[in-house]
Design a protein around this nucleic acid. Structure first.
Lengths: 348, 348
DNA sequence: ATTAGCACTCACTAAAGGGGACTGCTAAGG
DNA sequence: CCTTAGCAGTCCCCTTTAGTGAGTGCTAAT
């Protein structure tokens, strides 16, 4: 049990790499024979068996039972991902597709939706995109529109391009010109200002002059506040492609899958993982139980933060079976994060 | 094979009803013994067996094998739904919940989303809501906002409350006052008019005076047209709660489920079913193969049209296993359709 | 008409028995 | 010393067999 610093020979590493590749492809324990054939090293199965025994001592592979081939362990995957992986760069076609569908002219919400569905479409896995935290909330323009029966449609343009609208109920009917006046007043006084300050000033003014119009404006600001802070501050996220996990699932796992989907709905655990990525500020790969969640035992999570103006704004990633094509998925997540950040950036 | 008009006795009907109820509850073939116990008719199992033999002759029940209990056939379900069902009316609590979450102040899209998630939450089934077709598209107000670098944020208010926004690229920069002028012009001339007419008039004017400003307006109108016609005319729908179907699935059906989810993604088949409901203008219940789709063999689809201003605008419904709680699901679909229609209506 | 009784069917489970795919180990060969 | 052929051993997996029990259909009695 003395931890002899047994170096892993070049050859053993290569065999491990081939083994993991095979296992990811077929999902079946890899036998010494097939490995000897596939490795291109002109070795006999017996030699491969010896190497496998070494790798097993190092807990990098294991066999389901004595007369089966070898399967990578969690540590095996980890070593594979950390040291053995040769990342494939993306097709320019694929980059084009990503770029095209992450059109910076979209509003934030559709942009995130696109990112999520792109991720799940290209990787054929489930994807998750955390809503960006809202660093600044600047009022750009307000519009009031009278609807019938004491209701006013409020349209707010925030941060130069996000448009929010909602209907608010007022205590009396307002004429179009009254509303126009109120909007002009707000736009003149508050355009370009931070939303919090606007609210504070409005509250202050309201205490002075108990005027109805101001009350309406305040409601509008509250609305903007709710839309832009409560929600994304509430750390929400969106998912896509959960059903892709059905395609991959091993036979008996319908129970696992159900638990997994429940976990998705409860959000808490997933959020915790995303948070970790947010903290470390770099791509994170959780393999199997590394995530710390039982439901994710047979799944890996790959997350990457996306930055806007050099500031980490949020996290996106994918969830798939441990035996996923890491060398392909990793660059996809990476590039998507970069392109999403860029798309969000271009709008300033 | 002569179709003797064999009447189904009162007693047989009652037994069938109890049998279907049991089977829906437990998913297990119902034996003569349990049926005799549950029916509350003080009959011996042997008598029940005789009745079952009759019902089997009428193809209303069948047994998986000779020494198993009875299971309703498709026709059995059909008869149950058509003649035996005692619809439960909804709790006032549930109606309150529905009404509260179908807030008419929401915009159309969120309203439909709410309807969909409500349906799937309450029934614990998968839900589908067809987007309403757009009968009239009336321009209410236009707003142009200059962004940097030849981009203009266009905000359109349509049909009194729908707000659409998009960024359009222009061939030169416009000053805020230019844009204000253009908006004023459009609002003065076109507010309250049908979108098609607006477009035609714009096109006509453009031929006269090849002015850039008009070109921008036309782009705006095209945008509105795209948002409001292409999409809902394109007969799209939204779903929710697909994962609920996982909870219900019988053991071996992971394959079936996968096919089903694929069918959801392909949309065509589902759309066809919704269309049928649209045509008949009333609630439709497809049980198992009645839908005509193999993937839906073990599923039932319950759809109901929703009307706005007396006009059928769209269809919503649920998809669940054939052995669903019809007496509960049917009124939920019915009420949701009515309330959705009402919510969409209140906004005129 | 209803019911008790009985023979019969058939899914389900457990146990038993190959067959086969691998491995670990040993001993021989480079 | 590393590699490899050979061989014994393991254990999954599939099939067969047997036993059990739930439930039916039929018949004859009430």
């Amino acid at each position: 049990m003395v931890a002899h610093t047994k170096e892993i020979s070049e050859r053993a590493q290569h065999l491990l790499k081939v083994l993991v590749g095979r296992y990811i492809r077929d999902g079946q324990p890899v036998s010494s024979r097939t490995l000897a054939r596939d490795a291109g090293l002109d070795l006999s199965p017996a030699t491969v068996r010896n190497v496998m025994a070494d790798l097993e001592d190092l807990h990098l592979v294991t066999s389901p039972h004595v007369s089966a081939g070898r399967v990578p362990t969690l540590q095996g995957y980890r070593f594979f991902v950390d040291s053995l992986l040769t990342i494939q760069s993306l097709d320019s076609d694929e980059i084009q597709l990503l770029r095209a569908r992450l059109d910076p002219d979209k509003n934030t919400h559709s942009l995130l939706e696109s990112a999520s569905s792109l991720l799940s479409e290209i990787t054929q896995l489930a994807s998750v995109v955390m809503l960006p935290r809202r660093e600044q909330v600047t009022l750009r323009q307000v519009e009031f529109l009278a609807l019938s029966a004491k209701r006013v449609l409020v349209i707010l343009v925030i941060n130069e391009r996000e448009v929010q609208n909602r209907i608010i109920h007022t205590d009396r009917d307002y004429s179009p010109s009254e509303l126009q006046q109120a909007a002009n007043y707000m736009n003149a006084l508050f355009a370009g200002q931070d939303l919090f300050q606007v609210r504070e000033r409005l509250v202050a003014e309201m205490n002075d002059t108990r005027e109805n119009m101001n009350r309406m404006m305040l409601v509008a600001v509250e609305m903007a506040d709710k839309a832009f802070n409560a929600e994304p501050q509430g750390d929400d996220y969106m998912m896509a492609g959960q059903t892709n996990l059905l395609n991959i699932a091993e036979q008996p796992s319908i129970k696992t899958l159900r638990q997994l989907f429940e976990a998705f709905n409860q959000k808490r655990d997933i959020l915790h993982l995303l948070d970790q990525c947010l903290k470390t500020q770099e791509m994170q790969i959780f393999i199997g139980t590394e995530s710390g969640y039982d439901v994710l035992k047979d799944f890996s999570v790959i997350t990457s933060p996306y930055a806007v103006d050099g500031q980490i704004a949020g996290v996106l990633g994918v969830i798939g079976p441990t035996r996923m094509l890491y060398e392909r998925v990793i660059p996809i997540v990476d590039v998507t994060a970069k392109l999403l950040g860029a798309a969000l950036e271009q709008r300033h």
